[in-house]
Write a protein that binds this DNA or RNA. Structure first.
Length: 322
DNA sequence: GTCGGTCAAGTCGAT
DNA sequence: ATCGACTTGACCGAC
């Protein structure tokens, strides 16, 4: 028997005026003559983003969802070089505390997917330093929310730089330059153009990093289409020392031509075929729904799965495979 | 109210 | 060479 929990990403298509990713560009920041006033505006935006996150969590819990990925754009310009003197955490204490209380009270699993500028296998020093800075921000936010930062940020391996083998070894080299607290944050995901499941497993096993399997990416980028089945036990093995249950990403191709793009919703038949293959291999698995329609896609998937062969619904966002 | 252009950051594939 | 996509837009000004 395996318990499956569904989560969704960053924002709701149902809640109005609830963006957790409101922003201010550097250009807009500079246009405000009074720098202190401009910083206060940044802080107002960040506070509003965090308050909207709390609304999103409440909306989620009201619908049985306890698994959620935060936007990584909560604090506009947080790591901009011209704003290195801005101590943004100071102004965010209260909204972070409110999130902390709600997350604990409802035993939520929350995490991040830092954006694609975070590259751990780059040979460019500045890019690596900026990546470290961005990861540190994520760690600080997690601590502010009272969440143990271990395995809360999923990243891609990075760029191929015209030599994938060399790029993998560069990752290992750079890993040694990361502070331990940041190493602990990280999970790695197979990507849809460069680093396959097999490539990613190589790093995860060598460095002790949990692997977040993305089935859609695998279908877009594989050595053998079915090899995920032979590698599945290895994927499970990368979670052996994690305090959290294994997690994976679920999405469906938009269409044949735009195969890599996310569809509005999830194809339930394909998802169930996948689930029936992994049934019983783990006691619990958390599936992050990556679909254009966000929470609506989760609710629709849940409806579609109800009554399907081998599925026993527990509530709107979790079910048993039996 | 809707549409098009714009906005910090890196890399890749498509054109 | 340039552009859009990526993992998740949002905002502003023109109409």
């Amino acid at each position: 028997m395996t318990i499956v929990k569904l989560g969704y990403v960053a924002m709701s298509v149902e809640l109005q005026n609830c963006s957790p990713s409101q922003t201010m560009t550097f250009k807009q920041f500079q246009a405000i003559k009074d720098r202190e006033a401009a910083i206060r505006k940044l802080e107002r935006i960040a506070i509003s983003n965090l308050e909207n996150c709390l609304r999103l969590l409440k909306h989620s819990v009201a619908n049985d969802i306890t698994f959620f990925r935060f936007s990584s754009r909560l604090i506009p310009l947080a790591n901009h070089p011209e704003l290195s003197d801005w101590k943004y955490l100071k102004s965010l204490k209260e909204p972070l505390k409110a999130l902390s209380e709600y997350i604990q009270a409802n035993s939520m699993r929350v995490d991040f997917h830092p954006d694609h500028f975070v590259l751990l296998n780059t040979t460019n020093k500045d890019t690596l330093n900026n990546s470290i800075k961005t990861l540190s921000m994520h760690e600080a936010l997690l601590r502010g929310m009272g969440v143990d930062p271990e395995h809360r940020c999923v990243l891609h391996v990075g760029g191929a730089y015209e030599d994938k083998g060399k790029a993998l070894e560069q990752f290992i080299h750079n890993w040694g330059l990361l502070p331990r607290s940041l190493q602990a944050l990280i999970m790695l995901e197979n990507d849809d153009t460069t680093f396959t499941l097999n490539d990613t497993l190589y790093l995860c096993e060598k460095l002790g990093i949990p692997l977040v399997f993305d089935y859609h990416h695998h279908l877009a980028n594989f050595e053998n289409e079915d090899d995920w089945e032979t590698h599945w036990e290895r994927v499970v093995g990368t979670w052996e020392h994690s305090p959290l249950p294994i997690k994976m990403h679920i999405s469906s191709p938009r269409n044949e031509k735009e195969f890599r793009a996310h569809a509005d919703h999830i194809d339930p038949a394909m998802f169930n075929r996948f689930l029936q293959k992994i049934k019983g291999t783990v006691p619990e698995i958390h599936c992050m729904i990556e679909a254009k329609k966000k929470d609506e896609a989760l609710f629709k998937l849940s409806e579609d799965l109800r009554g399907m062969e081998g599925i026993k619904m527990m509530n709107q966002a979790s079910f048993m495979l039996e």
